[in-house]
């Protein structure tokens, strides 16, 4: 039974241009699904649609978002927000801007527990210390009292991870959480996210443009192009033999330092026009 299911999810710009074209996908509890695509493929848009934080210029125009079997879009707004707030959390891309620079770290973790789940401040603080310990931060009490600028990028991302897991959400959406980090820090953070996800048995939707990262974090993946699902499969099958020509091209363009003579192949124009045609045909079929 999948925890998150989207069916024919369609998001358009206010002027009608499609950003997501009938995206259907599912994430099971305890599963990590990667969303892969180039910039503009709409991979972040899916997470935003689920969280109900689409940008002003975009509008959800069709489809269903089922969370634990319940269609979010049929709920009244207040209930929907309450449900999302209790069950879904976000690990954002940029640890620099995701924390308020003028507030101490501690309250930024506990706010959510106190405001949304109605915990007592003291309970929430104990829980935050526990979580910071869980994400391998030394002397968590001191970190709770620090301001974000006093901490390194890796530390801040750990705090955001702790904060995401604080309310024991059933689903976490991670939007390129390691793109802003050094490779050595990225490795630690990816391992940490995986460790936390397994321990808490959370469903994780992991947005990334890096196929290397996909192979390290997820069990299954969905490849997107121009807001349309191009391929959906499990990770082993994908890396052994991607089915779609575009997926193959994307994999061939990804650098692999262990293969010194392998040349980097940009996605050929012929494949771009092939997949563009596929998208156009899909649109035409919808119109009919």
């Amino acid at each position: 039974m999948s925890y998150l299911t989207t069916k024919d999810l369609t998001v358009r710009l206010r002027n009608g241009a499609p950003l997501l074209r009938k995206v259907s996908l599912a994430v099971k509890s305890g599963e990590v699904r990667a969303l892969v695509g180039e910039s503009g493929a709409g991979k972040s848009m899916i997470g935003k649609a689920v969280l109900g934080i689409l940008p002003r210029a975009a509008k959800l125009t069709g489809g269903e978002i089922l969370l634990d079997g319940e269609d979010l879009l049929t709920l009244p707004p207040k209930q929907r927000r309450a449900k999302i707030g209790a069950k879904v959390a976000l690990i954002p891309q940029d640890p620099l801007t995701a924390l308020n620079p003028s507030r101490r770290v501690g309250p930024q973790i506990t706010d959510r527990l106190v405001d949304i789940l109605g915990w007592k401040r003291k309970e929430a603080e104990d829980r935050a210390v526990e979580l910071l310990d869980e994400v391998h931060i030394q002397s968590p009490e001191r970190v709770m009292r620090s301001y974000p600028h006093e901490l390194s990028g890796g530390m801040r991302q750990r705090i955001l991870i702790a904060s995401a897991f604080a309310a024991e959400p059933k689903l976490i959406i991670a939007d390129e959480p390691t793109t802003a980090l050094d490779v050595t820090v990225q490795k630690q953070i990816l391992k940490l996210i995986r460790e936390m996800q397994e321990r808490h048995d959370t469903a994780l939707l992991f947005v990334t443009h890096d196929l290397g990262v996909v192979s390290k974090i997820s069990q299954s993946l969905t490849v997107l192009y121009a807001g349309k699902v191009i391929e959906e499969t499990d990770v082993r099958t994908f890396f052994a033999a991607p089915k779609h020509a575009y997926s193959r091209a994307l994999l061939a363009a990804t650098p692999k330092y262990t293969d010194p003579d392998g040349s980097l192949m940009p996605v050929p124009d012929s494949i771009i026009s092939e997949v563009e045609q596929e998208v156009a045909a899909f649109d035409a079929q919808l119109k009919r």
Binding site: K187, S215, T254
Partner: peptide, 16 residues
Amino acid sequence: RALLDAIPLPDPDQVW
């Protein structure tokens, strides 16, 4: 060595 080791290869068999 740490830098090289941290590069995620597009290969599910690479174990960290």
